[in-house]
Design a protein around this nucleic acid. Sequence first.
DNA 1: TCACTAATGTACGAACCAGTACGTTAGCTA
DNA 2: TAGCTAACGTACTGGTTCGTACATTAGTGA
Lengths: 221, 221
Amino acid sequence: MTSVEEPARPGERIRDAARTRAEILDVATQEFARAGYDGARVDEIAAHTRTTKRMIYYYFGGKEQLFTAVLERAYGVIREAEQQLDVDHLDPVAAIRRLAELTFDHHERHPDFIRLVSIENIHGAEHIAASEELGRMGSPALDVIRRILAAGQESGLFTADVDAVDLHAMISAFCFFRVSNRHTFGALFGRDLVDPAQREHYRAMLGDMVIAFLTAERTAD
Amino acid sequence: MTSVEEPARPGERIRDAARTRAEILDVATQEFARAGYDGARVDEIAAHTRTTKRMIYYYFGGKEQLFTAVLERAYGVIREAEQQLDVDHLDPVAAIRRLAELTFDHHERHPDFIRLVSIENIHGAEHIAASEELGRMGSPALDVIRRILAAGQESGLFTADVDAVDLHAMISAFCFFRVSNRHTFGALFGRDLVDPAQREHYRAMLGDMVIAFLTAERTAD
DNA sequence: TCACTAATGTACGAACCAGTACGTTAGCTA
DNA sequence: TAGCTAACGTACTGGTTCGTACATTAGTGA
């Protein structure tokens, strides 16, 4: 995230709206991800900031809107990563694998994002619904998938006639679950899905799974 | 769940420890699944019960232990379903598909269970760790998968040499995500993954995916 | 340089909420 | 049938937590 670090001279009151706002967002992201929406404490967020609780209400209006802003930024980050993806020079099989790995890597690097999304789902995605920004912005990943699928299906490489949204769900499911359910899965089955030593194993497994699905001979249709 | 419905004659105080305990568990399951751990209100649980808050503390000790008891029962339900599964008469391919469908069906029928597990993950699976019962009981599904995999790999039908835990993770990921992330996914991509009209579609997709993965020709090894 | 406003800080209130002290009664058993 | 205990109810408390009223100052534009 875009953490702001400025040498705060003690006793001096420096005014910087953008910095204060950004700092609140940074800390709020951590706190919400740590404890969930209701478990998060506004006072705790303020305490980890160089400003006071008053500023949270000044800039965001309330806990609810703060969480929405946190979500907006977190989704913005993954969208940026997706936009940077360039797979037009790859053949469909390699392109799909690359895309899947991007999702895999992003989810692994941003467990806070995963937690925020889990939390938002517990609350019925009401903050996304309340956010204009989140409704507006589409998904670059979906566009990429659409193009790869079209190419793969046209060339006959891909036998499955899935649509982009479903394929995105399949990829996301694997990547998301690995991080989101790490703790219960580990406690129940004694295997840490996010163990760094197993990282390449699962990354390959995801690619193999998606490619196998897309290229399998259909027995009967 | 095992809801208990007894005609409560008004003004009369009927004593039934088992019924009271079960009723608290029923209501607590709903309340925790609805609002998350910190969002859930002990008073609210009590209010939807024919008894009082005092009884929650009498039987369970506290909010924390109540949530643990709720989790224990929820996991018990899926374990029972898994134990009923009999796939020994099926060939490996059909057997794996049947097992995947069992998970699919259970997750779809028990969204509360999914929410509880999501909530438990937000809290680092600390309640599972604190529960003797949950640590003790293994997973019948894993045993089944192990047997099917062994048969499939021996007969040469399965080319992938996955292990049971990983395959279980793959199946669970798809089934879990579909329910757990229903709201954010729906809000962002405009597709309801739990739409009844799409049920068979996703159920087949899951089976196709798993079978394709297990039976794909490996290009290089 | 003066005045105005955006930005910030302090102190507090009102509601909420987990947990408990204390009192009561149903139903079993000796 | 007496008495004992498991099962239950009422009423309250102490701490917490979101939110705000009110006061203050930094920086900017006229």
